[in-house]
Amino acid sequence: MISLSQTWMDGLLVMLMLTNLILLGASRLGHGIRLIAIQGALLGALPILGGQHGWTARMLFLAVITIGLKAVVFPWFLHRALRAGEARREDNPFVGHTASVLAGLVMLTVATCLSARLPTVGAGHSMLVMPVALFMILTGPFLITSRRKALSQILGYVVLENGMYAFGLVMLQDVPALVELGILLDAFVALFVMGAAVHQINREFDHMDADQLDSLKG
């Protein structure tokens, strides 16, 4: 039986998936940051709309925190980093934007296949959680690998985090705040630390191309 919350949840998950695909095809960095903000908002909505036990205070709190951080603070922070640097676009990625979208489809297939092999946990959950989470987890490293700009790589990392966040929110709702705390801590510190690193690299190298950071080898 498909409940209303499940329908909502499915919808949210599909939208997450779509933002992901769009992100793969986005060449403007600012655009990418906005997509990340949207993803953050969607993630914040997940516990509220997909909750099975009604609304609890904890969930509301989570949602607020998530939306606040992922949809507001991070994008703002990234925008600041973007303005500090020269580059606005991901001009010449290792894998072209169209090809990236196609690769995204492949990854989606792989994720679906893999998740089909894993048992679903908790009867009430959406069947889509696992595939979407895995898809995002694959997309993140893909973005990091295929893009040149340091900022794009941070975006990729955030996507990766979001994927796991989605999985964690849906699957392990009942586990004490610990996990969420972990997620937030991680995303939070990672972003600040990476942002600071990007800042330093900018100062030292006058560019933000991660692919030019290859003097250490062998």
Partner: peptide, 11 residues
């Protein structure tokens, strides 16, 4: 070089 190393480590 150390910044590069840190960046790689971080990522």
């Amino acid at each position: 070089a150390s910044l590069e190393a840190m960046w790689k480590y971080l990522i």
